[in-house]
Design a protein around this nucleic acid. Structure first.
Lengths: 383, 383
DNA sequence: ACATGTTTGTTAGTAAAGCGTACGAACAAA
DNA sequence: TTTGTTCGTACGCTTTACTAACAAACATGT
C-alpha cells in the first residue's frame, strides 16, 4: 500500500459531446421499434406488438395509429384462429405502398439503378452508360438516372440511396473517388436539391455490407469483401456500419499481404491485396494458365492471400461472418475454399468456431439493395 | 428496364430486438450528459451547462439539484469575473466525494488493486500474491483483495471495476482464462454478492484501451496492444469498446503473422504474433543476442511483425491511433519505430496520414485505471 | 341457451419530463 | 439612480407512456 502520489492531471479531454434526448426522440425510437417488429415479423396484432416490444397496448395503439396515418402500416383483416377472445386485427407494413430508389455507381462504364419496394425487391431496373465521362459530367449522368427512376416509380418514394465508390463522409460528400475523378463532391446535397427527396450516399462496399445484413443470410457482425476492379470491404458491427474516423474504413485493397514480395501495384507498392485478388488480375492469371490444375492454383493462391489478410481483422474483431461479393465464376470455388483453409490455419479455431466464410447470394444487385437498406434504416429506423 | 422478377423473399431475419425507451431513460441520459460536461469541463455554472448541452436552464437546474442530492456534484462558490449580471454559482463534480476500486488480475503471480478517485488517480495501492493458486482458490484471493480495498477506502465507493485476463462476456462471466484455470466463472456476480457493491468485469486489454481513451492522450478510434506474457488487444470505436460476437475481440496473440514460417507456439502453430512479440520471447531473444546491434535487430524484427499484423486491421477500421502498452524498456524504441515504418510501408499513407503509433504513458496502472473508467462509464455515464 | 372466461382494442385519468414564459436577485456601467 | 445583463427559479403547458377500466367479440362448459 502506497501513499497517494503525484500524477499528471487525469482529466480527459474533449470528445464528441453526445446530444440531449427529448421525449419526442424517445417517441420516434419507439415508433421505429414497432415498425421494425412489424417489418420483420409480418402480420401481427397490436396486442402482439405490445407483448414483443414491452410497450403497453395503449401506447402501441397510439403509435400504430400514427403509422397508419402516415401510410406506412395497414390493417389486413382479422386473424382466423380458434382462440377465445375478440379476434385480433392484423397489421402489416404497407409493403406495396412506397418505393425506394437504389443506385449503384461502383461499376465501370455504367451506373445501375432500380426502383425497389419496401422489402428490397427490385421493381424496375435502369442503367446509364457513363461513356468515359468524369467529374461533374458523370455526376450529371447519375442525377439524370435518379430523375428517370423517380419518374418511373408508381408509388410515393421514401428516399434515394446511392452507393458510390471512393471515400464518402457521413453527410454524403464523396471526398475522393479517383475512377470518377470526384473529390469533395457534395453528391447527397446535389441530388437532394435536384430531386427534392431525402437522399443518402455511402460507400458501395458499406452499402453492400448493409444489404447482406438486411436482406442476406447474415446473422451478426460481418465483413463484406467486394472484389471488382479493386478490392474493398464493408463492416457491420452490432448492426451498425463502421465508417472509420476518416470515413475510410474497409479500404483494404492497398494493404500489403504476406512477407514474400508480390507484383507491382498501381499504388507503387508490391503485393497489395489488389494485386492478388482484383478481377482484372485474376482474369489475366487464368488466361495465362496452361491447364485446369494451373487455373485452380491461380485461384487458390488468391484465396490464400485473402485468408492471410483477413486473419488479423477477424481476430481483432471476432467476426461471425465474412461474405465475399463479386464475379461468382472467379470467387466461388477454389478461391473461397482456399481462403477458408488459410484462415483456419492462421487463427485460433476455438475463438472463431462459428465464423463462416461464404459468397454473397445477392448477386449484382447487392449495392442497389444496400442503398435501399440505407433508406429503410435512415428514414424508418428499420434494418 | 426490366419487369419485376421473381426473387427470394427479401424479409430479413431475427436481430437483436432493441429496447423500448421510456421518458425516464431520456432523463437519465440527460443527467449523464450534464455530469459528463461537468466532469470534463471543470467549473461551470448551470447556465454554462445549459448552453453547452442545449437543454434549458430550468431543466439543467432540475438535473443539477438531483446530482447535488446524490452527492455527485457540489457548488464551489461564485465566479469572480467583471461581467455584468448576477454572478454565476460554479459547480463541479464532487471529485473527492467518492472512490472507485480498480483491480488488475492480468499479471503473473500477483493481483494488483487500488482505490482511485473520480478522476482516475490512485489513492491507495494494494497487491496480493497468488502463489500459483488457480481456480476458485485464486478467485478467493481476488475477492479478498477487493474486500481489503473496500475497507481501506475513506469515502463512499461508486463501484468496483475488474480487468481480468481471458474471455469475459458482457455479464462479467469469465468464459475462459487458462492462466488462472477459470472457465465459466461468474466473477462479477460472485464479487457483487460478497461485497454488496456494483461490480463490472471486463477483459484486461479492453480495460486498458478504455483507460487510454478516458485518461490517456487518445483522441478517437484506437486499438491498444498489450504485450506481456501473451499479446492481446482492446478496441475503442466511436467511444465504445468493441467486444466481438463471442466476446473474443482483440485476441490477436495467436494469429499467424507473415508468410515465412516462424517459431513454434504453445498453440501448435508456427509464427503466431506471440512468438514474435511476447515479453518472454523478447527477453530470450535479447539474452541470446551478442551485441547492441544484434539486440536492436531482435527488437526491430518484433516491431516489424507487429506492423505486419496491424496493417490489415488499421486498414479495415481506419483507426486514428495504435497504442502499445507493456515493458517500456522492450517496447519503446526500435520496436515501436520498426512497427511504424513497417506499417507505413504496407498501407496507403493518404488514408492513414493521421494514424499515430505510440507507447502508452499510463504505465503499470493502466488496467486498474481502465477498470475505474469502466465504473465511471457504467455507473455515471461518464467517459 | 346461457353464463363464463379470454383476448382485443379503446377511453379516461395520472405521473414524469422538458419546454416557454416570467420573475426576483445580483451585478456592471452610464 | 437608472439601465441593462445574467443567473437561477416558479409556474403552467405539452408530450409521452403508464394504469385502470370497459365494451366488443369470440370459445367453451353446463
Amino acid at each position: 500500500m502506497s501513499a497517494p502520489e503525484a500524477q499528471r492531471s487525469a482529466r480527459p479531454r474533449a470528445l464528441r459531446p453526445s446530444a440531449k434526448v427529448l421525449p419526442e426522440h424517445a417517441r420516434s425510437h419507439n415508433r421505429s421499434l414497432v415498425l421494425q417488429h412489424l417489418y420483420r415479423g409480418g402480420l401481427q396484432s397490436r396486442a402482439d406488438l405490445a407483448r414483443e416490444t414491452g410497450l403497453t397496448r395503449v401506447t402501441v395503439s397510439d403509435l400504430v395509429a400514427e403509422l397508419i396515418a402516415d401510410g406506412l402500416v395497414v390493417e389486413t383483416g382479422q386473424r382466423e384462429e380458434g382462440r377465445p377472445g375478440k379476434p385480433a386485427i392484423l397489421l402489416d407494413v404497407n409493403r406495396d405502398g412506397h418505393r425506394i430508389i437504389g443506385i449503384d455507381l461502383s461499376d465501370t462504364g455504367v451506373f445501375r439503378g432500380a426502383v425497389l419496394d419496401i422489402d428490397g425487391r427490385l421493381v424496375t431496373r435502369m442503367e446509364a452508360e457513363t461513356d468515359g465521362a468524369a467529374g461533374d459530367e458523370v455526376a450529371a449522368v447519375a442525377v439524370q438516372l435518379v430523375r428517370d427512376l423517380v419518374a418511373a416509380a408508381d408509388r410515393p418514394i421514401l428516399g434515394v440511396g446511392i452507393g458510390s465508390p471512393g471515400i464518402v463522409d457521413l453527410a454524403g460528400r464523396v471526398l475522393s473517388a479517383p475512377n470518377l475523378e470526384w473529390s469533395d463532391l457534395a453528391l447527397q446535397s446535389i441530388v437532394e436539391k435536384t430531386i427534392g427527396l431525402p437522399v443518402l450516399v455511402a460507400n458501395d462496399a458499406n452499402a453492400a455490407a448493409l444489404a447482406e445484413h438486411s436482406f442476406g443470410a447474415a446473422v451478426g457482425d460481418l465483413m463484406l469483401i467486394r472484389v471488382g476492379r479493386g478490392v474493398g470491404a464493408g463492416l457491420i458491427l452490432g448492426g451498425m456500419p463502421v465508417f472509420g474516423s476518416r470515413f475510410a474504413a474497409g479500404e483494404l485493397g492497398h494493404v500489403v499481404v504476406g512477407t514474400d514480395g508480390g507484383e507491382l501495384c498501381v499504388c507503387g507498392k508490391h503485393g497489395c491485396l489488389e494485386t492478388w485478388l482484383s478481377v482484372p488480375r485474376l482474369r489475366a492469371g487464368l488466361a495465362a494458365a496452361s491447364d485446369d490444375a494451373d487455373r485452380d492454383a491461380v485461384l487458390r493462391r488468391a484465396g490464400e492471400r485473402l485468408g492471410i489478410a483477413l486473419a488479423p481483422v477477424v481476430g481483432a474483431l471476432n467476426l461471425d461472418e465474412v461474405v465475399i461479393s463479386g464475379p461468382v465464376e472467379l470467387l466461388d470455388g477454389p478461391l473461397t475454399q482456399a481462403a477458408i483453409e488459410t484462415f483456419r490455419a492462421r487463427t485460433m479455431a476455438e475463438f472463431h468456431g462459428r465464423l463462416t466464410v461464404r459468397m454473397s447470394d445477392l448477386g449484382q444487385d447487392i449495392v442497389m439493395r444496400g442503398a435501399a437498406a440505407m433508406v429503410l434504416s435512415g428514414r424508418l429506423g428499420v434494418s
